[in-house]
């Protein structure tokens, strides 16, 4: 389990340009759950994510992985990079190998695995991300945008991390690409049973897939908990300019206009079964 204890991160500390990225954040990423992180750009989402695998060192506070400080020394930091897999925003810009297969194998090879094991992992990762054998032989630069994205995600999945962290995995993709990628990730998590952290500013995506939500604003945690808990605090969310999922927004407006509906629901199905009996009446 990944835990942040009073973590503060300051960019350019000691220079005239210093700026707080995160301010005294304490949060737990629960094992085996899907955690969604929402917030505006500049709210500290990406900073939080890069602290998770020791790319950034906290200015103060500690990041614990199963109770151990990941920034203790170079070894624990490197270890954390293998156990917490991080997929950056627009990960297709990190592709460099001659074939898709070789690129996916980059991570496992850095882990020092045997060739047979590497091959096995590449095949598995490709299957989870829906890349065919034929694509594995092609150059990553010939692929379409969505395929490139899947190839880059496969490169991290192949390292079989305990926690898979994705920064805006569906950014810039069409609706079909979005649901393919997010659906594939859910499928992967269900099979492997590991934790998933998804960063997004799309409230719909987060609401649909997350077990827990962390809402960030200006480097601080605005609220966190299950989607029901978070979306019931819509006043806090709206105050900081975060939009609610459309369904929740509709229910919220109904409840404000005097109808007795539960406004913290966030999926179409839930809203349907909440509203249907009332419409019939």
């Amino acid at each position: 389990m990944l835990e942040f204890k009073n973590v503060t991160y300051i960019y350019g500390e000691g220079t005239p340009f210093q700026k707080k990225g995160l301010d005294d954040v304490s949060v737990k990423i629960e094992k085996g759950k899907v955690t969604g992180i929402i917030g505006h750009s500049g709210s500290g989402k990406s900073t939080l994510v890069q602290l998770m695998n020791a790319l950034y060192k906290p200015s103060s506070g500690t990041v614990l992985l199963d109770g151990e400080d990941i920034n203790k020394d170079a070894k624990t930091a490197r270890d954390a990079r293998f156990r917490v897999g991080l997929v950056f925003q627009y990960p297709e810009y990190q592709l460099f190998e001659e074939t898709v297969g070789a690129d996916i194998a980059f991570g496992p090879r850095n882990m020092g695995l045997s060739e047979a094991e590497i091959k096995d992992r590449v095949m598995n990762a490709a299957r989870f991300t829906g890349l065919s054998d034929e694509i594995l032989q092609r150059s990553p630069f010939e692929l379409s945008g969505g395929q490139k994205r899947r190839c880059a995600i496969a490169g991290v999945i192949a390292m079989d991390p305990e926690v898979l962290v994705l920064d805006e995995p569906a950014a810039g993709l069409d609706p079909r690409g979005r649901s393919e990628i997010l659906g594939g990730l859910m499928e992967y998590r269900k099979r492997r049973g590991n934790s998933l952290v998804i960063v997004s500013h799309s409230m719909e995506d987060i609401a649909e897939y997350s077990d827990n939500i962390i809402a960030l604003s200006a480097g601080k945690i605005l609220c966190s908990g299950t989607p029901h808990e978070v979306f019931s605090k819509f006043d806090i969310l709206e105050e900081s300019g975060l939009s609610l999922p459309e369904v929740t927004d509709v229910l919220h407006r109904l409840s404000r206009s005097g109808k007795s509906v539960n406004p913290s629901l966030y999926t179409v199905d839930e809203a349907f079964s909440e509203l249907l009996p009332k419409v019939k009446k």
Partner: peptide, 18 residues
């Protein structure tokens, strides 16, 4: 900035530059 991002991404995949 771009170089910084790529370095971070490859480090996340276990690349070792040091």
């Amino acid at each position: 900035e771009e170089t910084d991002k790529i370095i971070s991404a490859q480090k996340s995949r276990g690349a070792d530059f040091e």
